[in-house]
Amino acid sequence: MQSNFRGSLLGLAIGDALGMPVEGMSYEEIRRRFGEIKDFMPSEDGLSAGEWTDDTAQALILAESLLETVYFSPENFAEKLAGLSISHRFGPTSSQAIRLLRQGYSWRESGINSDTNGSAMRVAPIGLLYNHNYNLVEEYAVIASSVTHKGSAAIAGCVAVATGVACAVNEDEELVNEVVRRAEKYDTLVAEKIEYAYQIRKSGLEKAVKELGNSIMAFESIPFAFYCYFSSKNFEQAVIKAVNAGGDADTVAAISGTLKGAEAGIERIPERFRKIKDYELILDLADRLYEVHLKITRVG
């Protein structure tokens, strides 16, 4: 299972870094300009090849918070979020919530009624650490989302990704049912589209982009990330598919990467993708999460 923790956290960062240069581009524009993207590239706004964005930055902050508190503390997580340096790569909802936290608002007051995907992209550490208890994963995902994103679709997407990661680590054959059932409590559209993503998993990428969407909205990007996960035989296929679809490419690839990485483990992640920013730091956080997970389950 340690390999799965490593694969999931590393997979998130890899997907983020692969999608970073083409974030906001359309499927057609990517094909016209690059053909097919298969490896890290620098961005036009100065980020280096293999460098990740706020998706990974927020996930690592969440991992660090969990390691400090063991049982999720929204106060601790909010304090760490408030200390992040906001760049132009941060989404509008996260940026606004972080500003409120810096102004002294509590985590109960800082969340924005927004349905963007910023809470889902970072939630993997919760799915990893508490994978032994899906109810706890769901509960903590809801709270973690609410610190920045209080929209029903945003919360449903966050619950879906956290549950998906937990199920993938456990090789749970009920992954689709668990994800859909738990997401449905918060937003039926997100749940229905994730279920549909599974149904069209054998369909081509263009059809999936057209019917699911891949914008920053949680009711598009989360189901589409699950489509990339469901439709791919291995890690590389999942992230390459997500990146080349365009749209919110870094976040979709980060989510599909964290899901497929949790399922596959680090051994099945191609060597060329390990030339990622802060590779050793990411592995260290994953290993420490695994150690805490062992302590929690032994106590249980």
Rank of each mutant, 00 (worst) to 15 (best):
E171Q: 13
V169R: 00
I143W: 06
A156V: 05
C158Q: 08
K150T: 09
V179N: 13
L136M: 15
A154M: 00
S145H: 03
A141I: 11
V179D: 14
C167F: 06
A166V: 07
L136A: 03
S145D: 08
A166Q: 13
A160C: 14
A166S: 13
T148Y: 13
A141G: 08
E178H: 09
I155V: 15
A144D: 12
V169T: 03
V161G: 00
E174K: 09
A141H: 12
H149V: 12
D172Q: 05
E171V: 06
V165G: 01
A162M: 13
A168V: 10
A141T: 15
D172E: 12
K150L: 02
C158A: 12
G157Y: 04
E138C: 02
I143M: 11
G157E: 04
V159N: 00
H149P: 02
S146N: 14
A154L: 00
V180Q: 12
E139N: 09
A156F: 11
A144C: 14
G151V: 00
V176H: 08
V137I: 14
N135K: 13
V159I: 01
V137G: 03
L136S: 03
V142P: 14
A168T: 06
A154Y: 02
V165I: 15
T163W: 00
G164Y: 09
S145W: 12
Y134L: 15
C158M: 14
C167I: 07
G164F: 04
L136H: 04
E174Y: 09
V180M: 06
V142I: 15
A144G: 13
V180C: 12
V176S: 08
A162T: 04
A162K: 08
E171N: 02
A168F: 10
V179R: 02
N135D: 10
E171Y: 13
V159K: 01
